[in-house]
Computed example of a mutant assay.
Amino acid sequence: MKKMLLVLTNSIKYGEKNAATGLWLGEATEFVDEVQKQGFAVDYVSPQGGFVPLDPRSMKSIDDASFAIYEQRQFQEEALAKSLKPSEVNADDYCGIYYTGGHGVMWDFPNNSALEKISLQIYQNNGYVMSVCHGIAGLLFIKDENGQYFVKDKKITGFTTTEEYLSGKSSVVPFFNEKIAEKHGAQFVKKRAFKSFAVQDGLIITGQNPFSARSVAQKFLENV
């Protein structure tokens, strides 16, 4: 069976600030809905494994299909309660890896060597490396075997600096994804704030914001 690996955050708050964040639910469930309809199985991993918190704001805007997935006991257990640790993942089992967002990922996705190794192995096996919204933070710091940033010279997108200001979180995030992407040599592209947009560069597919999860999945499905 074709299998996908979804990466979820363990971060429950904005760094040291006592304000709740976590996974933006629709960025996982909308992608899962698309790929499961095409026969893909899905596993879930997080930097530490185990519990995955939900950003409470994300519960206000999920569609019926997403809520149906959220209601599934399997999703609640495998994604939200008992996500895999990176050490429990065999990269050879997957044809793609997808980094979900939510502000929490800004603290625990960057510079996670175990997740980076999994991503590079999937990529080297001709698998797809994907992200949506803040999930791009998981790709921005990966370096290849030559010490070059994975995103260098790649066309990518993610949550923009403008969107960060519009969301009211510009003062609490540890960095701006758009600025780091450009600093690390990527070709960062974007469209109108908070509108669905995804871009593909070879085996890398990225989406701009929470409204782009289905677009990322659809681009992936067009290739497999």
Results as ranks from 00 to 15, higher is better:
residue 89 V to N: 04
residue 62 I to H: 14
residue 11 S to P: 08
residue 64 D to M: 12
residue 163 E to F: 09
residue 13 K to V: 02
residue 87 S to G: 01
residue 23 L to M: 08
residue 179 K to F: 06
residue 151 V to W: 05
residue 213 A to H: 02
residue 207 G to Q: 04
residue 138 G to L: 11
residue 168 G to V: 10
residue 87 S to V: 08
residue 223 N to I: 05
residue 192 R to M: 12
residue 77 E to K: 12
residue 206 T to I: 02
residue 193 A to G: 00
residue 47 P to K: 08
residue 101 G to L: 05
residue 22 G to M: 13
residue 118 I to F: 13
residue 120 L to W: 10
residue 122 I to G: 12
residue 28 A to Q: 02
residue 81 A to E: 15
residue 191 K to G: 14
residue 65 A to F: 12
residue 25 L to W: 13
residue 37 K to D: 09
residue 35 V to L: 10
residue 114 A to M: 10
residue 57 R to H: 02
residue 21 T to G: 08
residue 12 I to P: 01
residue 5 L to E: 05
residue 79 A to K: 02
residue 5 L to C: 08
residue 112 N to F: 06
residue 45 V to I: 07
residue 133 C to Q: 10
residue 222 E to P: 07
residue 96 G to A: 12
residue 48 Q to E: 14
residue 211 F to W: 03
residue 79 A to H: 04
residue 45 V to A: 01
residue 44 Y to E: 06
residue 9 T to A: 12
residue 26 G to E: 09
residue 102 G to D: 03
residue 103 H to C: 00
residue 80 L to V: 11
residue 29 T to D: 11
residue 213 A to N: 07
residue 69 I to S: 13
residue 152 K to N: 14
residue 123 Y to G: 05
residue 112 N to Q: 15
residue 129 V to M: 14
residue 178 E to I: 04
residue 205 I to L: 00
residue 106 M to R: 00
residue 210 P to A: 02
residue 184 H to M: 06
residue 91 A to F: 07
residue 107 W to S: 10
residue 22 G to C: 09
residue 129 V to P: 13
residue 134 H to E: 09
residue 92 D to L: 05
residue 174 P to T: 09
residue 171 S to D: 15
residue 200 Q to T: 14
residue 166 L to P: 01
residue 109 F to H: 09
residue 183 K to N: 13
residue 36 Q to N: 09
residue 222 E to V: 01
residue 22 G to E: 10
residue 1 M to F: 11
residue 97 I to Q: 01
residue 159 F to H: 07
residue 25 L to R: 13
residue 17 K to C: 00
residue 205 I to Y: 03
residue 100 T to R: 07
residue 56 P to F: 08
residue 59 M to L: 15
residue 37 K to M: 02
residue 8 L to Q: 06
residue 86 P to V: 01
residue 21 T to F: 06
residue 144 D to C: 02
residue 32 V to L: 14
residue 118 I to P: 13
residue 118 I to S: 15
residue 27 E to W: 08
residue 86 P to K: 01
residue 154 K to W: 06
residue 24 W to R: 11
residue 98 Y to A: 00
residue 43 D to L: 01
residue 209 N to K: 08
